[in-house]
Design a binder for these strands. Sequence first.
DNA 1: GGGTCGCACGACCCG
Length: 911
Amino acid sequence: MSVDRVRGVVVDIEEPKTVNTQYGESDLCEVTIRPDRGAGEPTTVTLWGKWTENAAVIETGMEIAVYNPDEREYQGEQQYSVGGDATLVVQPDFLVDVTDIRAWVQCPRMYYLRKLDGAEHAYPLVKGTIVHEVFGDLLRGRELDAAIGEQVDAAGLDIGLLGREADEVAGDVRDHASAIQGWLQQGTLTETDQWRSEMTLISERFGMKGRADAVRRGMPVELKTGKNTKREPRFQDKIQATAYALMLGERAAGAGSAVDAAPDTGTLLYTKNAAVDRNEESGDLSPAKEFSIGSGLLNYVVRTRNAIAAMEYDCSVPTGYEANAKCEYCFEQDTCMAVSGRLDQESKAGTVGRAVPDEELDYFERFYTAVEAERRSVHREYTKLWEQTPEERADNDRALIDLEPTGRTELDGGRWELRATGTGAVSKIREGNLVLASDGDPVTGNAELARVERLGNEAPRASDSGNGDAVNAEIVVTADEPLDLRRLDVYPSELTTDRLQNALHDAVLLQSPEQKDVLFGRREPEFSSVDETFIDNNDAQNEAVQLAVGAEDFALVHGPPGTGKTYTLARMVRALIARGDRVLLSAFTNRAVDNLLEALEDQGYTDIVRVGTESGVREDMQKYRLETSGDPGECASRLQSAQVVAATTATCGGSTLQTQEFDVAVVDEAGQLTEPGTLAATTLADRFVLVGDHQQLPPVVQSENETLSTSLFERLIDDNPDAGVMLDRQYRMAQHIQAFASREFYDGQLRPATGEVAAQRLDDLDGVSLSNLPEGLRDRVAFVDPDGSQVGNTNPIEADRISDIVASYRSARVPADDIGVIAPYRAQVAEISKRLPDVTVDTVDRFQGSSKEVIVISFVATGTLDSPIFEDYRRINVALTRAKKALVLVGDGDALATDEVYGRMVEWARG
DNA sequence: GGGTCGCACGACCCG
């Protein structure tokens, strides 16, 4: 009996050797693995022939999987052979992108360089994207001219930023697209082709993912906007198509051999061939080139994929010697040499220039490694796509399953609207998200990337994630192809990670030494003095604006809760504009960016360009949103001439804003941003101002990662206390409510701005009388121990008690809208919101930046505190400082007392 | 997008 898969952790690797067999000489290498993630009995896997190339990159500790191994006995021991039909996959959980395999095949250094500096704004790329879109449209049956017109229009901004005209680009695109059309017409005349465009493929088996331009009768078709008059397609183009073939084979094979089931032919469409002047060129000018896909090519793709996964295991940097590339012919040679020179790396191409200082090299390496760890966390999210057991599925908040398809409609332009009814389950999926829509199995079934248009009859607001009663909610998505909508999955994206890596590269390799001096502590930041008074009733706020206006390098504004941070920021931006500065406004979230714009608007300033997607930008800020389609000149000049440009830091790292320069970057919520995340905005400007509070939420990172969890804001404020101002007067909380946070997190520096703020009480609200409240809730701060018990991440008894407490406030005529409930876990949020459908119940993260008259906090934990309840004391700071007039803490007093900080908190709350 | 090696043409399924 044979097994179809062996998988385990490598514990030993023998030296590869050459042996004589009855069929001649052959290479082999023995690898010992322990199955079950290292817990099983040691087993020998023998790699034969070319698989021994992979043996050279395998290290102990790595995980390997072997498919269809040959099970046999050698010297009395049962072992597995990799040769013949078998396939070796190294680090199967690491998902290698097909375009990365393509780049690595050209040169491993190319793969690395692409990762460091991906975003560039160049005409061939913009044109290539448009041609690809038109190709998709043609496959969906659109008319050529209509498709070209629409796609050129859609790329208006990109074309304009390159200084090109729409007509000229349309002409270029037509040359390419008509070649495609000619070829398509030939095909459809003779046979009824079955086409799929833009097929998303994700392979659990091979640890690979990618998007094929098109699939015809199960075979991959790749579009290339270049020319190729040779008989054979380019090698790396074949490799790309072969990788898709491998994944298509996996889908077709079921439990059988993916290699055997892979399509045997790939097609490459070189669209420029038809446009070549026939007098000058000789050779094969047909756009379509077919090639045969054999097992050797398929295995070559897998081996290359393995080499990448092995390199990424310990974040090594490729030198170029891993393959036989010839540097003298490489068009990236200059970049390659410059990067290796500046980063002091070994490189086959050689190096040019001097290395950056040691501290910058260390910094680069530390953050590069941290960002790659973050990438691996994103990869782990993909595993949710193939979780199949009922427990796993029940626990998966990244998918909506068991949907009932209700219909589909073909839209103009050949796209489809797909509809289904849901079970009302809670998930991370939100309207506007890009998701994987499938017929039930996102990996092996029919699946398409889709956009969520509608989720439920009432659009879920950011604040009511815990709505457990929305049964039979209607779900609407749009996609390129029709399918029975039975499941939606979050589509994990490496976009953010890619942009962090680019920002790191730009900061270390492209910024001037003067700019870097202050970042690396080699020079103190400089300020010119500013006498003008900008805000006359708050000294700290005024000082913050003065500091920002006078900053030659950077300024830091520390804004604790309720201190008028946003108002100060808006005033600061106006002061900078008045000086003639061009300002970039940024923050981690779209919500924060829009809040800033609102504050600017309140102060009468509206000459703003907001860059972002339609679904990301708040309704009332759409009027400022930069139109990216239409007349290229108009789109581009609107951006180029804007004095204030606002975008999230992720957008700042994208190619559009990379074309722009600013005098000052102002970044809000900087305490929530990783260093590279902040750099994405600051590298676009000469100087920067960071505004935030490192005592509130830390940077959002998936991986447990110390390097990324300290913000640039925090590091700079620790190193340069003189470059910062703390806003010390708060306008939100009653004296007693703010007392604990002030003492614990702000050295007692935080004070109420006025006596009125300090003395505010619940009965200041219309019609509310304290005498209608139970005695325990009449103080501004109260502690209630409901004697509940923790069940998983919930505490139902505590939830009941919270429901009673809220009912008390409601019967004392406190409006539901003025009450908020905060819980540490999503499960408890759901538990409480079941009982309180009219009240905002949420986790801390979603409450940051807002406040309520009454806040009730659920601590859930009982008995002991195994894990820090709110993960981090900074989260409890955020929770406590959301309340204006009344704060009720609900939890197990004894359990909380076992922790020093929580213990002091309970003491304070019991008054 | 841009040029150079890489794959592969049969079957052994191995020490």
